[in-house]
Computed example of a mutant assay.
Amino acid sequence: MSTIRLLVGLGNPGPEYSQTRHNAGFWLVEQYARMYGQTLQPETKFFGNTARIQKGAMDLRVLQPMQFMNRSGNAVATLANFYKIQPDEILVAYDELDLPPGVAKFKTGGGSGGHNGIKDIAARLGTPDFHRLRIGIGHPGDKSKVTGWVLGKAPQTDQVLMDDTITEACRSIDILLQQDMRAAQQHLHSFKAQREN
């Protein structure tokens, strides 16, 4: 059984960002909490919205940092320190430019890929060795267009793909918690394979 104790979803706070691609991590944790009948509630001491999911042996904290993306690490480190959660017990979900809409992948450690939220979390935790769930949002094809892209709203076709992927990724998190990373990765991979057929 995997020992993930903290699930973090990255995004930017505020209604003007709620529908933007950069908030894919927010969408995932909101949906995951909903699957267990939970709603994320403001928790000022952790600089974000939190929920707790308990089922059988699972005791999972869910966090949406409510500071801007490049300061996400503050909330993550504060909550992790408070509950004595180690970096390798943390899973962070976020938007990934290098994956197309409709694809999500697990990854452990490594670089930030230029993602400011991941960069800040690694800096605050003092290590990049936490688990990640990358949700594909696609790339605009030109570096100069990236900011407008991530802070823009996806067209309906892409949004449907992202929503389906997030639903499947939530199921994969369950598999990760009940089994292990390999089983979760296989589930996500087979979902992608099914859709391409």
Rank of each mutant, 00 (worst) to 15 (best):
V103P: 00
P15S: 05
N116A: 05
N49R: 14
D158G: 03
K153W: 08
A169T: 02
D95G: 09
I175R: 04
V103S: 03
D163W: 06
I121W: 06
A104C: 12
L63D: 11
R171V: 11
M66F: 14
D180A: 06
R134L: 13
L133S: 06
S18K: 13
R182A: 15
R134Y: 13
G138K: 01
R5S: 07
Y36Q: 04
R124I: 04
G109V: 02
L188V: 09
Q19H: 14
I85Y: 01
D95M: 09
T50G: 02
P128L: 05
M69E: 04
S144V: 07
L177Y: 04
R134Q: 13
L176M: 15
Q179R: 15
V76H: 00
M58W: 15
V62G: 06
V8H: 00
V146R: 11
L99H: 12
N70Q: 14
E16K: 09
E30I: 10
F106T: 03
L7D: 04
M69D: 02
Q186C: 03
V76F: 02
T157R: 11
M1D: 02
P140D: 12
K55W: 10
R182S: 15
A122I: 07
L79I: 08
L151H: 07
L91D: 00
H115N: 08
S144I: 06
E96N: 05
D98N: 14
A154V: 10
Y83R: 01
K143Y: 09
M162A: 02
I135C: 02
A75D: 01
N197P: 00
A123K: 13
G56M: 11
Q156N: 11
S172H: 07
G56V: 12
A80N: 01
Y32L: 07
F130W: 01
A154K: 10
M181K: 10
R182G: 10
T165W: 03
G113N: 07
F46C: 08
W27Y: 13
R5T: 02
K145A: 15
D120Q: 00
W149H: 15
V103K: 05
